[in-house]
Design a protein around this nucleic acid. Sequence first.
DNA 1: TGTTAATAGGTAACCGGTTACACACATAGT
DNA 2: ACTATGTGTGTAACCGGTTACCTATTAACA
Lengths: 324, 324
Amino acid sequence: MVSIKDVASQAGVSVATVSRVLNSKGYVSEDTRKKVEQAIAELNYKPNEVARSLFKKQSKTIGLIVPDITNPYFPELARAVEDTAAKLGYTVILCNSDGKTEKEQHYLDVLMQKYVDGIIVSSNTISERQIKSLQIPFVSIDREISKDIPTIVVENKKGAKLATQYLQNKGCMRIAHISGPLNVVNANERCEGYKEVVRNEQWFNESYIGNGHFEMDSAIEATLELLQLHPEIDGIFAANDTMAIGAIKAVHKIGKRTPDDIAIVGFDGISLSKATTPELTTIEQPIYEMGEKAASMLIEFIEEKPVEKTFYRLDVGLVERESS
Amino acid sequence: MVSIKDVASQAGVSVATVSRVLNSKGYVSEDTRKKVEQAIAELNYKPNEVARSLFKKQSKTIGLIVPDITNPYFPELARAVEDTAAKLGYTVILCNSDGKTEKEQHYLDVLMQKYVDGIIVSSNTISERQIKSLQIPFVSIDREISKDIPTIVVENKKGAKLATQYLQNKGCMRIAHISGPLNVVNANERCEGYKEVVRNEQWFNESYIGNGHFEMDSAIEATLELLQLHPEIDGIFAANDTMAIGAIKAVHKIGKRTPDDIAIVGFDGISLSKATTPELTTIEQPIYEMGEKAASMLIEFIEEKPVEKTFYRLDVGLVERESS
DNA sequence: TGTTAATAGGTAACCGGTTACACACATAGT
DNA sequence: ACTATGTGTGTAACCGGTTACCTATTAACA
């Protein structure tokens, strides 16, 4: 690989001068600048980012820790983060934590050792203290860790209420909920939103809430149980789209129809929701926008630019399709 | 951040000695080793990977260039690559090229500047010459570039034949194909496989092949056209699952049923194929295994370990579900 | 006892950039 | 004529590791 020294000798100047034209910093005469630029072009020189990182103590790289890129919510987020980072001259290291503390800790260590300039994380086990101790810019996405950590989340409760009320308006008399793992903030908020709407209904009690893990199989099981316990259920709000699809499958399995017998609404608005038959009515999150915002905010922190707002709770909206 | 010097002075030895215990290389007495290890533990010292990279000219990082992580085929691949890389002590930088030459070139430059140790790429525009000129380990995945570049692909033609013959065996008399972009090797091979099976049928001609771009919308359109032109079609083989889902939708749209009126088979075996109603019959690729193989092979090259085989054409299999 | 090899550990060069500092020269102001 | 200021460029220290090379000590063996 050609180094700055090669360029310097080719252009007949010192490495300092080459560095100056590279960074447009300090005084360089028009003449020498041209000579250096020509040498750079002739040798097809590309500065070594590693050497630069070592001195500058920053790497133009950010870390993105997600539970599992295979979960259809995250590719779109990752794409948005990567797009934005690339546009601003950064590169992104992808980490899958499976939501496990050890893995998260391990990746945090690795990322710090590689001098990443900042980290975007979607986690519910990382603590505020831990993040602060790292001393580098951080953005939490999809899950709220603390009011003190820059965060991008959505109106989970509002969305859940929207979904539940919508089912009511559609004429559903008994609306069940399939929740995510309730120790995860967003799952909890969605469950709360649901409860706020149905709490005062005569028929309501906790047994109308089935527990899922944000995955399809768990939702199929939960739906089956729910429908056995309460055959009169005519509406289901699932805490994410994957589970909503599971619910559709379960409903189908016992010979009922969606939406005629049971209307179903999901949450997330992943692209999957448009691929099913019937297409899924869902509470859509601005996933791409979230990733974009997270990346651009993180990079503003990194570059010490002024950041007006550090806590975003983005709006969600109902997208009406065929499952309701 | 605590550096090797801090550890050295804390332990009362030179930095060379610390480095020796860090790398278990060269002579170090049991006594000093313990002192150093204690100092490391006390200071919670983590060696700076950037400094290491600079000297060693390698970064324990690999690049993964895919067209679009949002395309449901790639998250599983990326997950496999990342899992395997992490297990072997490497980190992965994710790049989305959209299949565009400029973006690929740009990422290649960036990755080289960051001293990545190797690159895994899924591309049909990068040339063999280009790859060779980079002088670092390379693995091409999902798409064959040249017999001379380490590659992981699947039996596309065989899979396509399998799918088409299966539809024949199911009693389909007129089988259409929705192809991917034919300039992409794998799409082309799948189309060839289809043609090999139906070429000699009396009814067959090229107008039974509709052109898609591996995306749902293009497949819906293509299917609609196909069915208008040939209302007698009773089987469709789509070159990937996303398009198969599009086909299902199109069939549904004109009031026909899957599989009763028209049987549909896809290709890929993405997790999406299990989420639809009806669930998709498809030619399943060992996606995770491909990513795993690509990463472990790449790292074998990087670490200059012996590699027995550099060209893998993995087997595919028919997974029979409800759409056929 | 002298020679050789193995063990132990320090010094400093090196990786490829960036930048503080020094120095030279030109120009302007008094 | 003298000083201050601005411009242009080179030298070398520095970032935090790794390792070639050197020296010293001890053990082994003829």
